[in-house]
Design a protein around this nucleic acid. Structure first.
Lengths: 135, 135
DNA sequence: TGTTGACTTAAACCTCACTTCAAGTTGCAC
DNA sequence: GTGCAACTTGAAGTGAGGTTTAAGTCAACA
């Protein structure tokens, strides 16, 4: 464990200082002491920040991440079922993006004179699933 | 072409009336006339709303969608290259989500006594790509 | 001693996509 | 002519995830 000041953490983690202060206010990270006014961190904060970044990619809100990180200091105690369920959610989102990408490619390639005349496109526009809504 | 009032459009499109008024203010749709105070639409608005929903799924902002929809009244004149490039972006996002899902599954299944001791997890946390940042 | 330059703070501001609010209007049933 | 639901308006509020600003503080260097 060695100590880093805010500029160092910003540089190594890629998060700007404003974000580090914001995260501290939100209870996601802690600084331990100051040199003059400058926050000092121990190097564990870098792991914590990496976990935060991962949490964000995994679709958790900062509040959720804060809760997860508070559960055990230094340890991570995530429910395995919860992780799998989140993975399933992410896969569903990934598939939706894929499907949309395929549609865009089809529209780009379609030989119909105008996009709105493409039969597949017209069919999709009538498909209630296109909106992701129930109406 | 037949006419629908706002409640009907809301019901058929799945967008709440507040959103329809909001979209009108933003220039995404137009109502043509009123019956009393109630906005009346012609049924073309439903196609337009489906296009808006698709645009959102495809990752465009409302401003971008508004611009695209204004290009040609009733027609859609999207650059095919632009569509393909957007499709590529979506596929990249989809892959990122997949990768994150795989990681979550691995963490859930990993036999290491604590998540932070899982070698693959530790390695990933050190990987700068985990943050999606350059720092 | 004085001036940088990098930090500090609280609070305001930002974008996006809407929703909610308060006050007013309309059509229709009774 | 009264009641009422469903609309109307502009303006303000929401929530997520920050960034920016203004005013202040500090260590170091000349």
């Amino acid at each position: 464990m060695f100590r880093l000041d805010i500029a160092e953490v910003a540089h190594q983690s890629g998060f700007p200082p404003s974000t580090l202060r914001f995260y501290e206010k939100r209870g996601l990270i802690t600084s331990d002491g100051r040199q003059g006014l400058r926050r000092q961190y121990d190097d564990g904060v870098l792991t914590r920040l990496a976990l935060i970044a991962l949490g964000q990619r995994a679709g958790y809100s900062l509040d959720e991440i804060a809760t997860l990180l508070r559960l055990k200091e230094g340890e991570l105690d995530l429910s395995r079922t919860e992780l799998q369920s989140q993975a399933t959610t992410l896969r569903a989102k990934a598939k939706e993006l894929q499907a949309t990408a395929d549609l865009l490619d089809h529209i780009a390639a379609c030989s119909a004179p105008s996009h709105l005349e493409c039969p597949r496109f017209k069919a999709l526009l009538r498909d209630p699933r296109i909106t992701g809504r129930t109406g």
